[in-house]
């Protein structure tokens, strides 16, 4: 299965990745190879198996509404690329 250059560009945009044309071509081949690999599973006869997104036959895995510990602010923002006054700080969302 061959991914088009446009499809790769679209996925990169959604993933917030800035890629050069070379990289786009490179990843188009790589991603296509991965999809080809995964495509092998299409060969398995699953006509008698209902589709599921879950690998375990579970339902209603829930917890009681009881308080737990939260992280202190310093820990919450510790790994942020940028923080200020306890907030995460990112580049302005609205750019005109």
């Amino acid at each position: 299965m061959k991914l088009s250059i446009e499809e790769v560009r679209h996925v990169a945009e959604l993933a917030k990745l800035e890629l050069s044309d070379d990289e786009i071509n490179h990843y188009a081949l790589q991603l296509s190879a991965i999809l080809d690999y995964a495509e092998q599973i299409q060969g398995v006869d699953t006509s008698s198996v209902p589709p599921t997104p879950y690998v375990l036959p579970l339902s209603n895995v829930m917890r009681d509404d009881e308080l737990g510990e939260c992280l202190p602010n310093e820990a919450a923002v510790a790994n942020a690329a940028d923080a200020k006054n306890g907030y995460f700080r990112v580049r302005a969302i609205f750019e005109e």
Binding site: N85, Y87, R89, V90, A92, I93
Partner: peptide, 9 residues
């Protein structure tokens, strides 16, 4: 939103 930045809580 504050100037060139956005603060996230």
């Amino acid at each position: 939103h504050s100037g060139n930045y956005t603060l996230v809580d």
